[in-house]
Design a protein around this nucleic acid. Sequence first.
DNA 1: ATCCGATGTGTGACCGGTAACACTCACGTC
DNA 2: GACGTGAGTGTTACCGGTCACACATCGGAT
Lengths: 348, 348
Amino acid sequence: MTTLDPPAEPSATDRPVVMADVAKAAGVSLQTVSRVLNAHPRVSLETRQRVQAVMRALEYRPNSTARALATGRTRSIGVVTFDATRYGPASTLSGIINAAGEAGYLLTVVPLPGTDRLSARATVDRLSRSSVDGIIAIAPQQELAHSLYGLAQQLPVVALDSSLEEYVPAVAVDEFEGARQATRHLLELGHSTVHHLAGPTGWVAARERTEGWRAAAAEAKTSVPDPLIGDWTTESGYRLGRELARDPDLTALFVANDEMALGVLRALHESGRRVPEDVSVVGFDDIPAAAYLAPPLTTLRPDFAEVGRESVSALLHQLDHDPPSWQTVRVPASLIVRHSTSSPRRPS
Amino acid sequence: MTTLDPPAEPSATDRPVVMADVAKAAGVSLQTVSRVLNAHPRVSLETRQRVQAVMRALEYRPNSTARALATGRTRSIGVVTFDATRYGPASTLSGIINAAGEAGYLLTVVPLPGTDRLSARATVDRLSRSSVDGIIAIAPQQELAHSLYGLAQQLPVVALDSSLEEYVPAVAVDEFEGARQATRHLLELGHSTVHHLAGPTGWVAARERTEGWRAAAAEAKTSVPDPLIGDWTTESGYRLGRELARDPDLTALFVANDEMALGVLRALHESGRRVPEDVSVVGFDDIPAAAYLAPPLTTLRPDFAEVGRESVSALLHQLDHDPPSWQTVRVPASLIVRHSTSSPRRPS
DNA sequence: ATCCGATGTGTGACCGGTAACACTCACGTC
DNA sequence: GACGTGAGTGTTACCGGTCACACATCGGAT
C-alpha cells in the first residue's frame, strides 16, 4: 500500500500534467513512464504499480499529439464523405463511426463538397496533411475514382461503394446480387417483365443495381425494357412514377432505392393503379419508413453496420500487413418481403 | 524568373518532404519557411516567392501533428454523437461536418455507446486525450448533462439539443416554439382539443415539444389530454396510433416526430379513420419521406444545416474569446403545411 | 573466478514544426 | 557622426512524447 498525495492534486499552475511530472513524482525516468504506458514487458511489477498509482493520482492523460509525432502513427483514420444526409451514406458513416470506436481508433471526417476533380483533390490534400493513418472513402461516384487512386499512392485507402475495386481494397454492399434477388423475386411471382427505375448515371451503386436487374432478366429470358433514370430523390421517383403509371403493360417494377420507390408509390396511387394488385414494386435500402408505407414496401436491406466494420478492419489490416490483401469484400443485402409485391392478377 | 529542379523530384529516399528540405532547397532557414507558411508579414516578396516555388516543386505538405504539438492547437474539433442513424441527429452531424469543413477545421467524431455515466466518461476521456481544441456534444438526453458538465471544465464545449444550456453555450432547434406553432395551427383550423404523442422521457427535445404543445393549449384555454409516450420509432407510433384511433373524440394530433407520425398515419388508415378528414396530424422534423406520404404530412422543418453552422461558430468563438458568451442559440423550425391537416368536419 | 545472457532502468537524440530572441542592415533624425 | 527604428533573417530552446542504445545488476554456466 503506497501513500499518495490527495487525488485532486490542483497541480500548482494550470498546466496539464505531462510525463515528466509523473516521472518525478514516481522517482523514475521518463522512459520508464513511457514503458508503463505502453505495457512494455520489462518493467518490474513494483515499479509498474507505483507509476500507475501516480498517473491516477495526478490524473495524467498522455498527449496523443506528441505520441503521434514521435511514432508517426496517429491511431486515427480519415473518412471522406459525400452527402451524409441520405439514408444509405448516413448509415454507412454511422457504422464506420461505431466500428472505429470499438477498434480504439479516432475518426476524422471531412466532407467532399463536390464531385469534381478539384474539390476531391483539395479534400484529399487536407486529409493527407492532417496526419491520419489511413483513409476510408465513401466515394459512390465513378468520377472520384481517379482522385482516390492518386491518394492511395501516399496512404492506405479503403474504398466504399466505389468503382475502385481494381486498384485499392474495397468494401461494398453487394448491389448486383441484391438487385438480382429483387428481380427474381418479381419474376418468380409470375411477372413476365420487370421494369426498372435506375439511379443516376455515374453512381456505382446505380450501375450495379441495374446490372443485377439485367442479369436476372437475362437468366429468365424475359424482355428488358429501357430503364428510366432518376436521381435517388423521392421527387424524381414521383415524377418518373407518373410516367411509368401510364404504361398499361407495367406490372412489376424494381426501383433502385426506397426513396424513389416512395415517390413511385405515391404516383401510382394518384394514377389509380393499386399496389400490389396492379403493380408490384421492390425498393432497395430498407429505409425506416419502408415498413410503414402504404403498402409496406418489399425491399433489400443492406447490412450497413457490417459495411462499417469490414471497412475499418480492411484498413487496419492494411496498416499492419504491408502488402495489402487486394480483395473486395461484398456485404450481402437481404430481401425483405412485405406487401408491395404479389402475383400479377392475370399472368400474361 | 527562378530556375528550379524538375517538378516531380523523386526526393531520393521515400521519406516525406519536411520543412528542412524546403529550407535547404531555397537557401533559407527553417524559420523563414515557417514564416512563409504562416503568412507572416515580414518576409520579403522575393524570398516568399522563392520559398513558395520550392514548396510547390517539392510538393511539401506541412505536418499538422508537429504544428499541433508546437502550438498547442490542433485545428480540429471533436464531436460526441449518440446514434447517428436517426434522421435528426444524422442531419445535424452532416451540418456540423460541412460547417467545420468550411471553417477549415477537422472533425473528430466519436460515438457514445450508451447513455450511462460510465460510457459517457470513457468517451469524454478519449476525446480529451485526443487533443481536440474543443467539443460539440450531440447529447439529446438529460442524463448526459452531468458528464458533459465535467468535461466543460477542461475544454471548451458546445452542447447540442441538450439540457445543459445553463452551464455551457448551447445550440438547439427551437423545439418549444415549433411545437407551439404546430399546436396553434391545429387549433386555428378549428379543432377544440389537440392530442399529443410525445417522445421518450429523458430526451430534451421530447420534453420541449411537449411543453410547447401544452403552452399553446393553455393559451387557447382548451383541454389538455394526457400525452401518450413513444420512443421515436415508427413502430411505437404505429402501436400507440392504434390506441389513439379508438378514441372517438380524437380529431387533431401533434406527434413529436415524423417517424412516429408515419406509424400513426398507418394505424389510423388501418382503423378506417381518414386523414385529414377525420383526424388531422402534424409531425416534426420533415423527414424526406414526409412530403410523399399518404397524405403528405404537415410538419415542422428544423434548419439542421444552420444548427451545424451555429454550433461550430459558437465553439470557434469560445476558442478565440476566452470569456465565452454564455448564450443559447435557438434555431427556428418552420411549419410546412401539407395535406394531413384540415378543419374538423363538424367543429364541436 | 570469468563470462554470459536476461532483466530492469536511464541517457541522449529525434519526430517536425513554432516562439522568443538576437542579429544585421539600410534608412532617417538630431 | 551617433543613434534609434523597423524590416528581414537566423539561432536556439521547446512542445511531449518515443526509440536506439548504454548501463547496472543478478543468477547460472563454463
